[in-house]
Design a protein around this nucleic acid. Structure first.
Lengths: 125, 125
DNA sequence: TCATCACATCGACAGATCTCGATGCTAGTG
DNA sequence: CACTAGCATCGAGATCTGTCGATGTGATGA
């Protein structure tokens, strides 16, 4: 923890004024957890299947075949997506139906615009 | 490779028609590489520093202090971001200046909307 | 009650990732 | 030509991740 705030450094050799880190450590960690959940092809295909599902939801057994992974693996990825609050599961009888959490997706999408792509107009090389 | 297309399964127990996987394997892999690069707090803070930089660019030595990581580690993350085409480095004399690639950020941002959050209006629970 | 289905969890393994310190390489400097 | 500064790369160790098969759990049905 004592490593982040030592930016009152005396020697600035090659940059004029950029020393403050805009994204706080915790904020960056929270965003990173979200993007990390998106950083796997199986999970992306899983999400895309949910996005394209007519009723907006799919039960677990329907993922296993198309994605070509074992049932345990699918369950593992669904858990990761759940913990990242990107999907939500609901039990109905024997089955568990999963659906997207659009707000969380918007949240991550918005963070790209507001926190990362701000320099878009400035640099625009 | 023989695993993806066996969705002419005979027993559909719990879902009406969702069997096709909208995101192709290669497409998912390409997107996943991008999001994977965003899935680390150090890299997010790195990007945010670039976004907030007045000139839109920062030289490597200015990352080391504020982020509290070794120079080798910073260089490692910059390489990952470069390979994901999220940043670009340019050598000027002794220094290497990095800047964002706004198009790639827009690309990833757009992929959330178009490919993942389409069910936004449909489900909207 | 017992068997079965759908799903979650566990144990284990291979591979990837993050991190550091050390070394190499390139470009200025004396 | 040495010497130094800035950055990339390497080697190594600790941790995390994706995957599978096996097992556990909860609900349904005979």
């Amino acid at each position: 923890m004592t490593e982040e705030s030592d930016r009152g450094r005396d020697q600035v050799a090659c940059s004029p004024c950029v020393t403050a880190a805009p994204l706080a450590t915790e904020e960056a960690a929270a965003l990173a957890r979200g993007f990390h959940a998106l950083g796997d092809p199986v999970r992306l295909r899983l999400l895309s299947m949910l996005a394209a599902a007519p009723g907006g939801e799919i039960c677990v057994c329907e993922f296993v075949g198309p994605l070509g992974k074992s049932q345990g693996t699918i369950s593992h990825h669904l858990k990761i997506l759940s913990e990242a609050r990107l999907v939500r599961g609901e039990r109905r009888g024997k089955w568990v139906w999963y659906s997207l959490e659009p707000r969380r997706l918007e949240e991550l999408q918005g963070s790209i615009t507001s926190r990362l792509a701000e320099a878009e107009t400035a640099s625009s090389s």
